[in-house]
Write a protein that binds this DNA or RNA. Structure first.
Lengths: 338, 338
DNA sequence: CTGTTAGCGCCTTCAC
DNA sequence: GTGAAGGCGCTAACAG
């Protein structure tokens, strides 16, 4: 069977408690004793039994991460960041996919995984704002994303501000007819609505008129839907010199179409995305975009959750991550007609 | 504190063992007793403590999945399939990223996660074939991918055969000058080499000459590198009427360039990818590709691993998944000059 | 600084 | 068909 602390203690000629002290970095152990124990550990190939520790301590050392889909680049990269942040703090992440389906999101709140984790990072996409009471669960939880505002900690992007900044960035580069792609008409919250609001805000501030003809709807935020929306705009003959894609996939789809149609980017049309997904570093031309602070979101969310797990009872907090404009080729300066 | 079996037993007026029997679907429980226990469970909101069960049973009910990166679409979708397969079998998946770095791959073999999992599904990308002895670990493991052939169970794609089939598919559609993109010159194993071998095999069978000018190298298998390779081929003025991308990202990058250059797909050039990634369903035109049997790979790998965990001592097995040609628009028939 | 004791919540063994 | 006892490997509390 597996080597236990008992075996190590026996071998090192100490008690089991001393072994525990060494393993747990308890400071008051005589160096000589510590050495003997460490030697025994090495010789026996001992490895701590996490399950036993967890049972004893009443925690599992794991946190859950429930997200729509790993195959959506933003979430894959978010998962990456969360795992890194968690690792740095000594906890392990258990990922769960909800497929952005309402019932599976509800299920995640009550799945068997909840018995295996000390808390949950929850990124819902389908739950409705009216269902916030479902978020009143009896375990620590931190919400990610824009979707809900229940009585729990919440880490979110500066959607409005960042979209505004992206649009203004295009204005500063000389754009006067700026289209946006990815709108969800009728939506009252959620990223599409918030980013659209930021876009309009920027136009207003810049003294540019809002033109509904410059708005490209796109339900799913994929390359293909971005390409379709861009195609519709071009086919409609709308005059434009800038495009703000509400995420990078949409913007990349738009870039693709512009290329195909012989529209020079950034010379004729400048393009901004949103998310700073890995792909944006590999496009032609390189896509300018918004870094929404994914790292910060991940580390903050993990920290808030760990505080709750540690027993913090402060009122629900709301953290908005810092964003940054990532200026690349697709909206280089110097494109303006002087 | 949490509700325990003891509480339930007390409430139902039975012993703790009876509760355990009910919870574990033990058949010989009087219906009346079962009902009483189930009632008590519901009333108290009892949930089994998995940690305690795991400690007692000496297993964790979790399996590890170590893969290069979730942000690579193929692996994100593989993770998805593995999680589904595992769920159906009542086990939970713990994902770990290695970044395709040799040291982190080695680390994964010995990380703290190993104490939390009953076994490991390991998909290395950087380890060298000479290092197969590192795979002789003291826990159940199943290898995924082409990279290594150590003394462990291995589930792999039919790389050579599928690449051959993809290339022949282009031949059947009338292609005579078929380029391939994604080659890794000098590689002796790994997907790039195997798929290249399949490509050459198909050419030979079809009686077509192999022309080194039709081979586009690409170290990383991204859209951008695919686009670059395609650009180099076109710029070199090589005559071609078909392209086999060694994965979908490469093929999608090539599609993009062909579009930009005004080359009609599939009319002038037919294109095949490999992997059947989600994106292939959203491109313009839709990308024909190879479904390498990801679902089958996932379910088989999970099954093999669970057999090992259950104690199976049979010699290492090697399973090659079935593949399928997914014919979409990018290589439609009727493009041939008759 | 180190040893002893007593469980964490569950399942297995063996009675009854 | 059900109950009682013991222990999985570890750590918290308290001695010494």
């Amino acid at each position: 069977m597996a080597v236990t602390m008992h075996d190590v203690a026996h071998r090192a000629g100490v008690s089991i408690k001393t072994v525990s002290n060494v393993v747990n970095q308890y400071p008051h152990v005589r160096p000589e004793t510590r050495r003997r124990v460490e030697e025994a550990i090495a010789e026996l190939g001992y490895r701590l039994n996490t399950t036993a520790r967890n049972l004893r301590q009443g925690r599992t050392g794991m946190i859950g991460l429930a997200l729509p889909e790993l195959s959506l680049p933003y979430f894959a990269e978010l998962a990456d960041s969360v795992m890194r942040a968690a690792e740095a703090r000594g906890v392990v992440v258990l990922i769960e996919q909800t497929g952005a389906q309402r019932d599976r999101e509800l299920q995640a709140l009550d799945s068997s995984h909840r018995r295996l984790t000390d808390g949950l990072l929850f990124s819902p996409l389908a739950l409705e704002p009216e269902e916030t009471e479902r978020l009143e669960v009896d375990y620590p939880m931190v919400l990610l994303g824009e979707r809900m505002f229940g009585p729990v900690d919440h880490v979110t992007m500066a959607n409005v501000e960042a979209a505004r900044a992206a649009t203004l960035h295009l204005v500063e580069r000389g754009c006067r007819r700026i289209a946006t792609i990815g709108a969800h008409p009728g939506e009252t919250m959620g990223s599409a609505r918030l980013r659209f609001d930021g876009y309009r805000k920027a136009l207003a501030e810049a003294g540019l008129p809002f033109d509904p003809d410059l708005v490209g709807d796109a339900g799913l935020w994929h390359r293909s839907t971005g390409a379709e929306a861009m195609t519709r705009l071009l086919d409609a003959g709308v005059e434009l010199d800038g495009v703000f894609g509400m995420n990078d996939a949409l913007a990349l789809g738009a870039l693709h179409v512009l290329h195909t149609r012989g529209v020079a980017v950034p010379h004729d049309v400048a393009v901004m995305g949103f998310d700073d997904v890995d792909d944006a570093r590999y496009s032609e031309p390189l896509l300018s975009t918004i870094d929404p602070g994914r790292e910060q979101i991940a580390t903050t969310a993990v920290d808030l959750l760990l505080e709750r797990i540690a027993g913090s009872q402060v009122p629900p907090r709301r953290v908005v991550a810092d964003f940054e404009i990532v200026a690349r080729e697709s909206c280089l300066l110097g494109r303006t007609v002087h």
